[in-house]
Computed example of a mutant assay.
Amino acid sequence: MAISPKTATDRGGKTLFDHTIVTVERAASELRRGRPVLAWDQQRAVVVQSAELLQEDWIDGLRSLADGEPVVGLTYNRANILHVLPRSGDVALVLLPEIMAGDSQARVIQSMADPDDDLMRPLLGPFHVAPTGAEPMHEAGLKLCKLARLLPAALFSASFDVPDAPGWAAARGLLSVAAKDIMSYDQSDAAALRQITAAKVPLAGAEQTTMVAFRPDDGGTEHFALLIGDPNRHDPVLTRIHSECFTGDLLGSLKCDCGEQLNGAIRHMQDQGGGVLLYLAQEGRGIGLINKLRAYQLQDQGFDTVDANERLGFQSDERIFGPAAQMLKIMGFDKVRLLTNNPLKVEGLEACGVTVTERVKHAFPSNAHNDHYLKTKKKRSGHLLP
């Protein structure tokens, strides 16, 4: 089998699968292990290191790999908290901070990324924006941190010209990835979803349930669907898009309403004669479980759910709807009655080619632990709640 940087082919030259998504996932995995990767665009490149996992010796390492001082890359939301804004776009490049008494430079950079100590260290800084603005590789580097389920902050080497980025990286033991491949990853990963298997899984209150598993050809993110009954493919199907919530769905957390939404949707579909529940691997509105716990910690400090996500450097909601649309199309559904209180889900699904004929309300009473959370969703995120 011949393998090129982009595709794998059989002996007859037939393309088996595209390596683009594999390369992005490998790069994200490298960041999670604390290793740097090379992000490149045309003939420009930067070495990317997760700020969250930064070690002191890698600051000098990035100096030695490129001619110039490294810079800290932050999203607009996180940079705004630190009172420094991008020169343009949504990525701020910040000069390396001065070392404070009792601190290492790596520790200060980690504090720039992680808001956990913001209230304890309100005078952290001041920070200064770099003289040059962000390039496509910087935006892609922060996106890669998100895909790795890390905080969206990075230490970047100085950007440099390189005619052969993959060759340059390979000679130095680094993985390289194109910026455009990182930025198109979500769409590519969703489009590559395939149905892998299906099995009957009788549920309490919905015994005629089939669980369907989906995975991209290249082994990327897996998602699941629950078919309640045997929904008619010719009529709009009652559908719920449910993002996985370990704390709410499995542990019964009172901090959100996810468990009630999940179980309530299954009961409602059973009562209505059938439906489809899409269970997506997009924990914490797409930021991952660990970052969701970080957001919970910020909520305990007095920030609401929107402020907490943005203080971490994320958007208030990072979820995408391409996987949901692809799963529905694979199963033969192109029209849905969407069980949701979130208008953005309606817009997101329709933007991916699925017709939403009706929004079906889906609300549950609050409790002492999630009352403020639900009010915030209504007031700041536009959810249609009582």
Rank of each mutant, 00 (worst) to 15 (best):
H362K: 15
N342P: 06
L338D: 06
P343G: 10
E347A: 11
L339K: 02
L328R: 07
K345F: 11
V354G: 01
Q326F: 06
V354S: 04
L328D: 06
T357S: 10
V336C: 15
A324R: 00
N341A: 15
A363I: 14
K335D: 12
I330R: 02
M327W: 09
H362S: 13
A324I: 03
R337C: 03
L349A: 04
P343A: 05
G348R: 05
K345Y: 08
V356E: 01
L349P: 05
N342Q: 03
L339E: 01
T340E: 07
E347Q: 14
K361G: 15
Q326A: 10
E358T: 03
E350A: 06
V356L: 00
C352R: 07
A351G: 13
G353P: 06
A351Y: 09
V346F: 01
K329H: 10
V356G: 00
E347V: 14
E358V: 02
K335Q: 15
L338R: 00
V354K: 02
V346M: 06
L349C: 06
V336M: 12
P343I: 08
L344K: 07
K361S: 12
L344C: 05
L328T: 11
K345L: 13
G332Q: 15
N341I: 13
A324F: 01
L338T: 05
D334R: 13
V346N: 04
V354W: 02
M331K: 04
C352A: 12
E350R: 02
Q326Y: 07
T340P: 01
K361E: 14
N341S: 08
N341H: 05
R337P: 02
G348V: 14
A324N: 00
G353H: 09
P343C: 04
G348S: 05
A325E: 09
E358M: 04
E358Q: 06
N342C: 02
K335I: 04
K335R: 12
A325L: 07
K361C: 12
K361W: 10
H362Y: 10
G332W: 14
V346Q: 07
V346E: 14
E358S: 02
C352S: 09
A363F: 08
V346C: 08
E350Q: 11
T355P: 01
V360Y: 00
E358P: 03
Q326R: 13
M327E: 11
L349E: 08
V360T: 00
V336P: 05
A351K: 13
E347Y: 07
V360Q: 02
N342F: 03
C352H: 12
M327Q: 07
K335T: 14
V346W: 00
T340I: 00
Q326H: 10
K329A: 14
H362M: 12
L328K: 05
Q326D: 11
R337S: 05
E347S: 06
L328N: 11
D334G: 10
L338C: 02
V354Q: 02
L344R: 13
V336I: 15
E358Y: 04
N342Y: 02
G332L: 13
L339C: 03
E347C: 00
E358N: 03
T355A: 05
T357N: 09
A363S: 11
E347F: 11
K329C: 08
E347M: 10
A351D: 11
T357Q: 15
P343N: 10
H362Q: 07
R359F: 01
L349S: 05
N341G: 09
T355E: 09
V336R: 06
M327H: 12
I330K: 07
A325V: 07
